[in-house]
């Protein structure tokens, strides 16, 4: 650990903690999850970056949306994202969540995921290689450093709009709003 790092640790331990301990939700949203096993096991070993898959969203702060998002999955994605404790980061993995990818004309697929939950970064490609995950992680580190990974804040600020979009796509949602009106600031 060089001196620069040490000063950063002393200045903002919380931020450094968020950087180096990214626990990802173990949630297989689409076909892109096939790239995750090699990246967390012996071949690429994500744990050296502090990235570790955990069982429930309550314990996690990184959400990888790996691959296409069907309408049915969107419900679970929103629920999972809302259950993650703040601060939380979400990364769209593959071209499908960005713009629909090869499912661009499917009747049952969500095209632009960031209309429904805020996304902090995208990994383009179909499929992206596991190395791309690490590029994304290091990129996320710089974003966290510069306070630019602020998806969760955007979600809080524009919750009404997000909720309206979600209800537009899914109809009535079974759970109450995460934020009531007065917390909007």
């Amino acid at each position: 650990m060089d001196r620069n790092q040490l000063i950063k640790w002393l200045k903002a331990p919380a931020k450094m903690g968020h950087k180096y301990s990214l626990h990802a939700v173990y949630f297989c949203t689409g076909c892109g999850i096939i790239e995750v096993p090699p990246s967390i096991t012996a071949r690429w070993d994500a744990e050296r970056f502090g990235v570790l898959p955990v069982a429930t969203p309550r314990q996690a702060n990184l959400f990888l949306i790996t691959g296409y998002v069907s309408v049915k999955t969107l419900r679970a994605i929103i629920r999972t994202y809302e259950q993650m404790p703040e601060p939380k980061y979400s990364v769209g993995f593959g071209s499908c969540p960005i713009n629909g990818g090869m499912y661009w004309d499917s009747y049952n697929t969500i095209k632009h995921l960031d209309k429904y939950i805020p996304i902090d970064g995208w990994i383009a490609g179909c499929m992206p290689r596991p190395e791309a995950i690490f590029v994304a992680v290091t990129h996320l580190w710089t974003l966290i450093d510069k306070d630019m990974a602020d998806g969760y804040k955007r979600y809080r600020d524009h919750y009404q709009a997000y909720r309206a979009n979600q209800e537009h796509a899914l109809g009535k949602l079974e759970w109450p709003p995460l934020f009531s009106n007065e917390t909007k600031s």
Binding site: R75, A76, R79, E174
Partner: peptide, 12 residues
């Protein structure tokens, strides 16, 4: 949170 807000693999 309410008792309904617990982890169920994304289901309500």
């Amino acid at each position: 949170v309410a008792q309904e807000d617990t982890y169920a693999a994304g289901a309500a």
